[in-house]
Write a protein that binds this DNA or RNA. Structure first.
Lengths: 219, 219
DNA sequence: CGGTTAGTTGAGTGCATTCAATCCCAGTGG
DNA sequence: CCACTGGGATTGAATGCACTCAACTAACCG
């Protein structure tokens, strides 16, 4: 159907971006241990990438927003983690080999990949500090600051902040139980750092939240 | 020896590896926020890379062993984290710009950098799952398994395993207090999964430890 | 020897978890 | 139209794990 690899821009674009795919909320784009399939570029929606322990516990490692690429991380020839659509999601799907060849051929793209990887590693490290050192409420505060920053990147409304993920997802991201997440929200409300309506959460005192979060803001 | 790349071998080698530096246990190779200095390749000893919160709490992100490179992670023009010699350390020190130029000029080296970054990101992700999901004793078990694997990589004695880091360092790595680390060791002894002598720790039942650690082995 | 530092262990506290009840809302079918 | 249902969220009560504070041991070094 799509012929492979011409050094012609038009074709490239088409090759890369033509093959779209949609996912319902709750569907998995890929699972850990599955043979490597394609790489996904998110067009709309949010994907949660998670590590899962044998007994079912899971750690959500990152939330991927439109414009980001997920599914590229691999060990051997299997996916390392799992990617789940937590909203309805639309993706571009394209082959790994082709992606590799393409970046190899373009030095500047390789540099972009390097910078992206480094930035992701940086974020992961900051999150390690959060998980290891912050109390539950501090973690929620840090999460809200982070989410606001992501929303601003994407030009989304931040007053109020519409939370696209459930308490359970937040809990699995922050290494706590959903009830504890809920209590933390209540605590933040009582401290008048946030208010909540059915539309979402409003951050009343960003400096105060950042102070609670203590950790340097994550990039 | 280190056989890095062919063209202009002699000179390159000299440029890269001639400048050595030694560090006493406890010295910092670099600190977060400092203007970017050189990149460090560790020849002997172990370096702990850590993130530090404003109030002094720290999260040790990784331990770097001989042959590894640390100090390359950056945001803007500052070091993101801090690198501390936890034993006496000998390093090669070389300039960032030169390193960049060198990798840019050699596609294969750039690929090595990419793979290394990806592997580090993979490890960081697995450690996120550990911090987020495992109990304290499980975390210590995971840590011991990981350390053994690292030792084997480097051809070091693993029966017994000589722990190069104090309880406090382990605690700051695993997000717990040093007393809890100590209690976890005692628990593992009581479970007859390990024994300890003044020479170090012997892992009696690796499968048992790995089972406790639950998480997939980290790479 | 005394002084110092790393490690272990005990007692008591507190924070996060577990289990459970309730509430709210959206969806559905009588 | 309203009663019913199910999922997400909040809150309460009780438990338990990890933390704090503190005592004590062992090893090392002057």
């Amino acid at each position: 159907m799509h012929n492979v690899c011409q050094p012609l821009d038009r074709n490239r674009q088409r090759e890369f971006y033509e093959k779209r795919q949609t996912w319902k909320k709750g569907q998995f784009l890929y699972r850990a241990g599955e043979p490597l399939g394609p790489i996904f570029k998110i067009i709309t929606g949010i994907v949660a990438v998670a590590d899962r322990l044998p007994d079912g516990r899971r750690q959500i490692l990152d939330f991927f927003f439109p414009g980001e690429i997920c599914g590229y991380l691999e060990t051997e020839d299997r996916y390392s983690f799992e990617g789940e659509a937590i909203t309805d999601v639309e993706t571009c799907v394209f082959g790994r080999a082709r992606f590799k060849a393409f970046t190899a051929a373009h030095g500047d793209l390789a540099e972009i990949v390097r910078v992206t990887l480094m930035s992701k590693l940086n974020s992961a490290n900051h999150r390690l500090a959060e998980l290891g050192q912050l109390s539950s409420t501090e973690r929620v505060a840090a999460f809200l600051c982070w989410l606001k920053a992501r929303y601003e990147e994407h030009g989304l409304e931040t007053r109020p902040l519409t939370l696209p993920m459930s308490r359970e997802l937040i809990a699995d991201h922050l290494g706590m139980r959903l009830e504890t997440v809920s209590r933390s929200f209540s605590r933040l409300k009582r401290l008048e750092l946030i208010t909540a309506s059915d539309a979402g959460v409003t951050l009343l005192d960003l400096p105060g939240l950042a102070l609670l979060a203590a950790s340097d803001d994550r990039p």
